[in-house]
């Protein structure tokens, strides 16, 4: 069944049809939540909450990119999660910046151990760099450079203008570049600038 038919069926209450949409988009949704929130547990909570909200609000979907509509809900779920954490006195936003279990989540059985270790180092450093960005710059950077959305889709997913997308993305890239250049020695040698 194509996506449009699945959306129509799901909007009539067909949960099985909606779950097919979940299977198609859960990797993208979870990755976005993980990059925004920084930990696996919080990303799981936000992703699950986002899919529940999406199912309940399918009647408000008015066509266009379903992916962008869904990622907007994921983004808002992440922002809600961060607001809850800020209100909770026992938790800290710093807790979200590093996940000790993250290493175990990136095992790819097809990858050589040495390559895996290199990519793991790179990933950890990049995740720290992303976490250092303001939340809206973080979101636009992940949507563009990791998830590969177009400027139009990002504008729809973040409910903002193309100009704002351009400006936030440029600032995010510049800040991440400065962050990485300051920490060149922490990057695996293969990924250092000038080692092409």
């Amino acid at each position: 069944m194509d996506e449009q038919r699945l959306i129509e069926a799901a909007s009539r209450g067909d949960l099985a049809a909606f779950n097919q949409l979940v299977m198609s988009y859960q990797a993208m949704a979870y990755n976005l939540a993980f990059r925004i929130l920084g930990t696996g547990d919080s990303a799981q909570d936000a992703t699950q909450e986002a899919f529940i909200k999406a199912y309940r609000n399918l009647g408000q979907y008015r066509g266009g990119s379903f992916k962008a509509w869904l990622l907007r809900i994921v983004t808002n779920a992440c922002y809600d999660y961060l607001r809850q954490v800020q209100r909770r006195p026992t938790s800290s936003l710093d807790d979200l910046s590093a996940d000790p279990e993250y290493t175990g989540q990136l095992i790819d059985p097809l990858e050589a151990p040495s390559d895996y270790a290199l990519r793991q180092e790179l990933s950890t450093l990049i995740q720290r760099g992303i976490a250092s960005l303001p939340i809206e710059q973080r979101t636009v950077l992940v949507l563009s450079d990791i998830e590969g959305l177009s400027y139009e889709e990002i504008a729809q997913a973040m409910d903002t203008s193309l100009g704002t997308v351009k400006s936030r993305l440029s600032r995010a890239r510049a800040k991440l570049r400065d962050y990485l250049l300051e920490r060149q020695e922490l990057l695996p040698s293969r990924y250092r600038l000038g080692n092409d």
């Binding site: 909606f18 990797a27 979870y30 990136l106 950077l141 450079d145 991440l176």
Partner: peptide, 16 residues
């Protein structure tokens, strides 16, 4: 570098 960042595997299904 961002493009080469590995995707995080989904830990479980999020079906409802």
């Amino acid at each position: 570098l961002l493009a080469e960042t590995p995707r995080v595997p989904v830990p479980r299904a999020f079906t409802l």
